[in-house]
Structures are given as structure tokens and as C-alpha cells.
Amino acid sequence: MSDAKKINPMLKMALELGPVIVFFAAYLKLREETFLIGGTPYDGFIVVTAGFIPLMMVSTGILWKLTGHLSKMQIATLVLVVLFGGLSVWLNDDRFFKMKPTMIYLLFGGALGVGLLRGQSYLKYVMEEMLPLQQEGWMILTRRLTGFFILLAVLNEVIWRTQSTDTWVYFKTFGLSAAIFVFFMTQGSIFQKYALEEKKD
């Protein structure tokens, strides 16, 4: 059982998605600007990234304070945001921050893949309370999600290396979220076939 405290779902969503929405809005406003800081010119993307890092840290900290719990996925995401975002700001190079989704999805896909090699579904440990499935269902879903995460990592690399920064920001803000939503919506047959029936007293 999870020790996480229940909080208002809308507040939880605001804390999780708020930083991304603020990043997107700030980028649209500052993308054409250049800022001279300490004698070094920084474009709007770098400045927005510099603001996104502490905002992400604060929102994650508030979420932890309110719930008393952070998932491994949330912790890994925050660490990679600080690491790759910090490198982009420090080196004044947007490529590091653009690589962040690639690293996140490779990390998640790799972790699930290691579990599969051991005959286990690590996804089950993360989502069991939300999706009670039979073991076979968890293994099928984990295999599919592993491949999907790797596909997203490759897609992010293709987008940021071949398209404009504007295209990548739209892709990161809307495309990745939509892709994950569509993925789970198309797994209905697994949820129906392998759902655990509730035990009756």
C-alpha cells in the first residue's frame, strides 16, 4: 500500500503540469528576445529554461510536502531536468535540454526492459493500485510500453535534430503528452481481458 496522502486531483494536476505550461507560455513570449547577462548573450529559450528548473523543483517539493510521496518517475524526471537544464544554461547550449526527453524515455524503457529480462514487470509496482491486472496482462503491457518509450526517445532525437526549436517545443508540450494518452487509450483490450475481478466478502 502507498503511504501517499490524497490531495485534490486538480491541485495535483496543476503541480505536475503547471511548470510545463508556464515554460511553453514563457517561451512563446521570449523566443525572439536576447538577454545580455554578465556580458554573455542568452536567447529566450535558455532564459526560459533557467526559470523552468527552479519552478520544477518548487512544484515537485510542494507535491511531496502535500502527499508525503514522490514516485520514482517523478524523482528521475526532476533529476534529469536539473542536470540537462543546468548544462544548457551553464554552457549556453539548448541541445542539452532538448536531449532531456530522450534520456527520460531511455531510462524508463531501459528500466522496464531490465525487469522483463528478469521475468518481472516493474510497471506493475508503479501502477498496480490504478490498474489491477493479472500477471500476464502486466507483462504484455510492459513489453508494449518498453517499445513505446524507446520509440519516443528516437522520435525526440529526430525532431530536435532536424526541426526548428519552435517545432520541438510544440512537440514536447503537446505531442509527447498526446502520444502517451493515445497509447493507454489503445490498450483497452488488455485492461478488459486481464482485469482482476474484485473479491466479494
Rank of each mutant, 00 (worst) to 15 (best):
M56Q: 11
G113H: 09
Q134T: 09
L123W: 08
R118N: 04
G188V: 10
M1L: 11
L176P: 09
F181R: 07
W138H: 12
Y42H: 14
L55Y: 09
M13T: 02
E197D: 13
E33R: 07
K199R: 15
S164G: 12
Y122W: 14
A4P: 10
Q163Y: 14
L123A: 10
Y105L: 10
F148D: 01
T173Q: 14
A76N: 03
M103T: 03
M10V: 08
V169G: 08
L116W: 09
Q74T: 10
K72I: 13
D201N: 14
G110L: 07
M103I: 15
W138M: 11
A76M: 13
R118I: 01
V126R: 02
S88K: 00
V58R: 09
P101R: 08
D201Q: 15
T40F: 00
S2T: 11
A195G: 10
G110M: 06
K200C: 10
I150C: 08
W138I: 06
T34Q: 07
A26F: 11
Y122P: 05
L91H: 12
V158Y: 10
E136G: 04
G115V: 10
D201G: 13
V82M: 12
I159K: 03
S71K: 09
L15P: 04
V82K: 03
M56D: 00
T186E: 15
K72V: 12
F52L: 09
T60I: 11
S59I: 00
Y105H: 15
L131S: 03
D166A: 12
I62V: 14
F183E: 06
K5R: 15
Q135F: 10
T60Q: 09
V47H: 03
M13L: 11
N92E: 05
S121C: 13
L133R: 00
M127N: 04
V20A: 12
I140R: 12
G110D: 05
F84T: 00
V81R: 01
P41Q: 08
W64P: 06
A25D: 04
R143T: 02
G68W: 07
T49R: 01
L106M: 15
T67E: 13
L36V: 11
S189E: 10
G113I: 08
K72L: 14
K172P: 01
G188T: 10
F148L: 10
F183Y: 13
M56S: 15
Q163L: 14
G113D: 05
